[in-house]
Amino acid sequence: MATRIAVEDLLKATNFTRAELETVSKAFADLDPVNDKVDRAHFRDLLADTFNIDSSLIMDRIFRCFDLDADNYISHDEFVRGMAVFLKGTPEERQRFCFRVYDLNGDKYIVREEMYQMLKNCLVKGTDEDEDGVKELVDLVLKKLDEDKDGKVNETDWATAIAKENLLQEAFGPCLPSKKAALAYLANQPII
């Protein structure tokens, strides 16, 4: 079993209250961790059942953003730190989180192919006509996001574009919970 960071240190490292930290820790325990780690399947169930995130691609990317040591499991500390941003992060933290989710290959850029893959995953039913529509949408989104016009979106482009039009933050599918879902989760209440 991994050594956990002390509660006081987690409180300092996150923006959780003590009660919220206890709720998140209990939620982690409810995910049935083995050796104090949660696997991808249990985490995906949480995202789907609690936060209505239903894209397999997005769920996998969120998992990767939580799994800081890349061991294919989420430890208690990774879960708490990830949830701190996921549920209560500052606008800048949430913006960086979304960028990391959408940067499919982790190279610090979102390129046309990644946009296409995400939008196709969200929108396409399988016809060539649908794929042409996705390509057009990718062109529009790239034009909005690519501030320096180099054909790819870096974190600076992303931040600038999101500051102008916040709705672009989840242009490729929701990767953050709604405010209502986040509050209900932290209050340990069912989402109505």
Rank of each mutant, 00 (worst) to 15 (best):
Y185K: 09
N15C: 09
I191M: 08
T17R: 03
M115S: 08
F79H: 09
P177D: 07
D45G: 07
P177N: 06
R18G: 00
I53Y: 03
V101T: 08
S178M: 07
P174A: 14
G82P: 12
A171I: 09
T90V: 02
A159M: 07
R44P: 00
V38Q: 04
K135R: 15
V124F: 04
Y109T: 01
L183Y: 10
E113V: 05
L87T: 08
E129H: 05
Q169V: 10
V7K: 15
C65D: 01
L10F: 02
Y73F: 15
E147W: 03
G126K: 02
I62Q: 10
E136Q: 12
A27W: 05
L183G: 10
E113C: 04
K12P: 00
P177E: 05
T90E: 06
Y102G: 06
K12Q: 10
E113S: 14
G82H: 09
S56M: 04
G89I: 01
K164D: 10
G133I: 05
Y116P: 02
V101L: 08
S55P: 06
V34Y: 05
F51V: 03
R112W: 01
D148E: 13
A13D: 13
V34P: 00
E170I: 11
V85W: 06
V85S: 08
P190V: 12
I53T: 02
E20W: 04
D30I: 02
E78T: 13
D77P: 06
A41K: 15
I62D: 11
L119D: 05
R94L: 03
F86P: 12
S25K: 12
L140Y: 07
N121R: 03
N35L: 11
N52R: 11
K125Q: 07
D45M: 09
Y73S: 15
D157N: 15
R4L: 09
L142I: 06
V34F: 04
D32H: 10
N52C: 05
D45Q: 14
D107T: 01
D139E: 13
Q169P: 00
D69F: 07
V138W: 04
Y102W: 01
L11S: 06
L186F: 02
F16D: 08
L11G: 07
L68A: 15
S56W: 01
F43P: 03
Q95C: 14
P33R: 04
M59S: 10
A163Y: 02
A27E: 09
N121K: 03
D107L: 02
D107Y: 07
H42S: 15
V124Q: 05
L183I: 10
I162K: 06
D32E: 13
E129A: 11
D103Y: 02
Y73N: 14
F99N: 04
E20A: 03
M115R: 04
E165F: 02
E155V: 11
Q117K: 13
E8C: 01
D103K: 09
L87Y: 04
P177C: 01
F28Q: 05
C175K: 11
D39I: 04
C98L: 11
V153S: 07
N188C: 03
K143H: 15
A161V: 03
L142M: 15
Y116K: 12
F63Y: 08
Y116F: 15
N166M: 02
V138D: 05
I74S: 07
C122A: 12
Q117E: 13
A41S: 14
E113N: 11
H76A: 06
F63L: 06
R18P: 00
A41L: 13
L145F: 13
A171Y: 01
L186C: 07
A6C: 10
E170A: 06
N35D: 15
N166Y: 05
V138L: 01
F99S: 05
F63M: 05
